Amino acid sequence: ATNIVGKVKWYNSTKNFGFIEQDNGGKDVFVHKSAVDAAGLHSLEEGQDVIFDLEEKQGKAYAVNLRIK
């Protein structure tokens, strides 16, 4: 899925991951530091509006192509 809109539920910059809540009511999506770095960001803030693509690997969904809304 592409261009999914959501809000950062939480992001832990020490542990380098967090979760994004989808605006469409879907399951929360894992986001890793690598996606944050690829977006040219240092971190994510709770409540921040983002747009992302959804990829699945080994049955787990995660956010890629992250951008600030």
Score class of each variant (00 low, 15 high):
Gly6Val: 00
Glu56Ala: 11
Glu45Pro: 15
Gly40Ser: 10
Phe52Ser: 01
Ile20Leu: 15
Lys9Phe: 02
Gly59Gln: 12
Lys69Ile: 04
Lys7His: 10
Asp49Leu: 10
Ala35Tyr: 06
Gly26Cys: 05
Asn12Glu: 09
Arg67Thr: 13
Glu45Asn: 13
Asn24Val: 15
Asp28Ser: 06
Gly59Trp: 10
Val8Asn: 01
Gln22Cys: 04
Val36Glu: 01
Val5Asn: 08
Asn16Lys: 12
Ile20Asn: 00
Arg67Pro: 00
Glu21Cys: 05
Asn65Val: 04
Gly40Asp: 14
Val31Met: 06
Gln48Met: 09
Arg67Leu: 08
His32Asn: 06
Gly6Trp: 01
Lys9Trp: 02
Glu46Trp: 15
Ser43Phe: 11
Gly26Ala: 12
Asn12Gln: 14
Gly26His: 14
Val64Glu: 15
Gln58Phe: 08
Lys9Asp: 01
Ile4Glu: 15
Glu56Tyr: 14
Lys57Trp: 12
Val50Glu: 00
Asn12Trp: 14
Thr2Asp: 10
Gly18Gln: 01
His32Asp: 05
Gly18Asp: 00
Lys27Ser: 13
Trp10Asp: 02
Gly40Glu: 11
Glu45Trp: 11
Asp28Leu: 07
Ser13Arg: 11
Phe52Thr: 02
Asn3Tyr: 11
Ser13Thr: 07
Ala35Phe: 06
Ala35Ser: 15
Lys27Val: 10
Val29His: 06
Lys60Ser: 11
Glu56Gln: 10
Asn24Glu: 06
Asn65Lys: 08
Asp23Val: 11
Ser13His: 07
Val8Glu: 00
Lys60Val: 11
Gly59Cys: 04
Ile51Arg: 15
Asn3Ala: 06
Asn16Thr: 12
Gly47Val: 03
Glu45Met: 13
Leu44Asn: 01
Ala35Gly: 04
Asn65Pro: 00
Lys9Tyr: 02
Gly6Pro: 00
Ser34Ala: 09
Glu55Cys: 04
His42Cys: 05
Thr2Asn: 15
Gly25Glu: 08
Val31Glu: 00
Lys57Gly: 14
Phe30Arg: 02
Gln58Pro: 08
Val31Lys: 00
Ala61Gln: 07
Ala39Glu: 03
Leu54Tyr: 15
Asn24Gln: 11
Gly18Leu: 02
Val29Thr: 13
Asp28Gln: 06
Glu45Leu: 13
Asp37Ser: 14
Ser34Ile: 15
Ser43Gln: 12
Leu41Ile: 15
Lys15Met: 12
His32Thr: 04
Ala39Leu: 11
Ile51Met: 14
Asp53Ile: 03
Trp10Ser: 05
Lys60Gly: 08
Asn16Gly: 15
Ala61Asp: 12
Asp53Asn: 13
Phe17Thr: 02
Glu45Lys: 14
Gly26Phe: 07
Gln22Val: 07
Tyr62Ile: 06
Trp10Ala: 03
Gln22Lys: 13
Glu56Leu: 15
Val64Phe: 12
Ser34Arg: 12
Gly40Thr: 04
Val64Asp: 05
Lys27Glu: 07
Ser43Asn: 11
Val29Asp: 01
Asn24Trp: 15
Ile68Met: 10
Gln22Leu: 14
Glu55Leu: 12
Val8Met: 03
Phe30Gln: 02
Ser43Arg: 08
Asp23Lys: 15
Ser43Pro: 12
Ile20Tyr: 00
Lys33Phe: 13
Ala39Gly: 09
Asp28Val: 05
Lys7Phe: 09
Ala1Lys: 12
Lys7Pro: 02
Gly59Thr: 13
Glu55Phe: 13
Glu56His: 14
Val36Asn: 02
Ala38Ser: 10
Thr14Met: 09
Tyr62Gly: 13
Val8Gly: 01
Ala35Val: 09
Ile68His: 10
Ile4Met: 08
Ala38Val: 08
Phe52Gln: 00
Ala61Lys: 09
Val31Ile: 07
Ala61Arg: 08
Phe19Gln: 02
Asp53Cys: 03
Val8Asp: 00
Ile51Leu: 13
Gly25Tyr: 08
Asp53Ala: 04
Asn16Phe: 11
Ile68Gly: 09
Glu56Gly: 07
Ala1Ser: 09
Asp49His: 11
Trp10Phe: 15
Gly18Tyr: 02
Asp49Gly: 12
Lys69Val: 04
Ser43His: 12
Gly47Trp: 05
Val36Met: 10
Ile68Phe: 06
Gln48Arg: 11
Ala39Gln: 05
Phe52Val: 04
Lys33Asn: 05
Ile20His: 00
Lys69Gly: 07
Ser13Cys: 05
Asp53Lys: 03
Gly40Leu: 06
Lys60Glu: 07
Tyr62Pro: 01
Ala39Pro: 02
Ile20Ala: 01
Ser43Gly: 14
Leu44Met: 06
His42Asp: 14
Glu55Met: 13
Gly6Lys: 01
Ala1Pro: 14
Gly25Lys: 15
Ala38Phe: 08
Leu66Phe: 02
Asn3His: 07
Tyr11Ile: 03
Ser43Ala: 08
Asp28Cys: 04
Lys27Met: 07
Gly26Ser: 11
Phe30Leu: 05
Thr2Ala: 10
Gly25Val: 11
Lys33Ala: 13
Ser34Asn: 07
Ala61Glu: 10
Gly6Ala: 04
Val36Ser: 02
Gln58Cys: 05
Val50Thr: 05
Lys7Ile: 06
Glu21Trp: 14
Arg67His: 09
His32Ser: 07
Gln58Ile: 12
Ile20Gly: 00
Glu56Lys: 08
Lys57Leu: 08
Gly6Met: 01
Phe17Cys: 03
His42Arg: 09
Ile68Cys: 05
Ser43Glu: 11
Gly47Arg: 09
Gly59Ser: 13
Lys57Ala: 13
Phe30Ala: 02
Ala61Tyr: 09
Asp37Thr: 12
Ile4Thr: 06
Val31Thr: 04
Phe52Glu: 00
Lys60Ile: 06
His42Trp: 10
Ile20Phe: 06
Leu66Gly: 00
Lys57His: 10
Ala38Met: 12
Leu41Met: 07
Phe19Leu: 05
Ile51Trp: 15
Glu46Ser: 12
Asn12Val: 10
Val50Trp: 02
Asn3Pro: 04
Glu46Met: 13
Ser34Thr: 13
Asp53Thr: 05
Asn12Gly: 04
Ile68Asn: 13
Asp53Glu: 05
Phe52Tyr: 07
His42Lys: 12
Lys33Arg: 13
Gly6Gln: 01
Phe19Trp: 14
Asp23Ile: 13
Arg67Asn: 08
Tyr11Leu: 03
Phe30Asp: 01
Glu21Thr: 15
Val31Trp: 02
Ile20Pro: 00
Thr14Ala: 10
Gly59Phe: 08
Glu56Cys: 04
Leu44Val: 05
Gly6Glu: 00
Phe17Ile: 05
Gly18Arg: 00
Gly59Pro: 04
Gln58Asp: 11
Asp28Trp: 06
Asp49Cys: 05
Val64Gly: 06
Ala38Tyr: 08
Ser13Ile: 10
Ala63Phe: 01
Phe19Ser: 02
Val29Pro: 01
Glu45Tyr: 11
Gln48Ile: 10
Ala35Asp: 06
Val8Trp: 03
Phe52Trp: 02
Lys7Leu: 05
Lys60Leu: 10
Lys33Glu: 04
Lys69Asp: 09
Gly47Asp: 09
Lys33Gly: 08
Gly6Leu: 01
Lys27Phe: 14
Lys7Thr: 06
Lys7Gln: 06
Trp10Gln: 03
Thr2Gly: 07
Asp37Met: 07
Val64Thr: 12
Asp23Leu: 11
Val29Gly: 01
Gly6His: 01
Asp23Gly: 14
Ser34Gly: 11
His42Val: 15
His32Leu: 04
Val36Ala: 05
Gly47Asn: 15
